[in-house]
Amino acid sequence: MPITLVEAALLTFVLGCALGAALLEDTLAAVMAFAAYSLGVSVLWLVLQAPDVGLTEAAVGAGIMTVLFLLALSNTVSPDADRLFEPIRWRTVALVGGFVLLIGATVPALPAIGDPNSPVVAGEVSQYYLANAYAETEVRNAVTAVLAAYRGFDTLGEGVVVFSAVVVTLSVLRREVVA
């Protein structure tokens, strides 16, 4: 699919916010740029027909994540920023530029965006889920059917990860009180 104006505007917004988050010296400003970035990305998921991912990204990425960052900021003190942007270190830019070029060089090997014959879309697994998800699980949303039924063990693993994260967070933040 050739690029549309909406997508071009969204991608520009998202990349601009990411650059802002990377270069703004003030930590609070960087967190705000990151929140705007998450919101832009969640709209991008809607444009790419992934409403489930968009909702999760808006609630979790732009919502919970921002709250976590603000909590971390309110428990720490960063020195006042005396300039708007951090100075750009060109040696790192060259290194990262090489990495980007390396990744970019693989792009022509990928199928065009929206190609109906691309291996992911036309692949056996995707087509099986779309053809049988409703008959086998009686859930109309194929994403829910795959998440909770076909790949239920993956989701259980996800639950284990979240549980361990809570345990680790609590044990890291607990102060040892030596009486």
Binding site: M1, P51, P116, S118, V121, Y134, R140, N141, A142
Partner: peptide, 12 residues
């Protein structure tokens, strides 16, 4: 990668 032209969200 999941996107296809004219595709709808996967709600059957």
């Amino acid at each position: 990668l999941a996107f296809r032209n004219g595709g709808n969200p996967p709600v059957i």
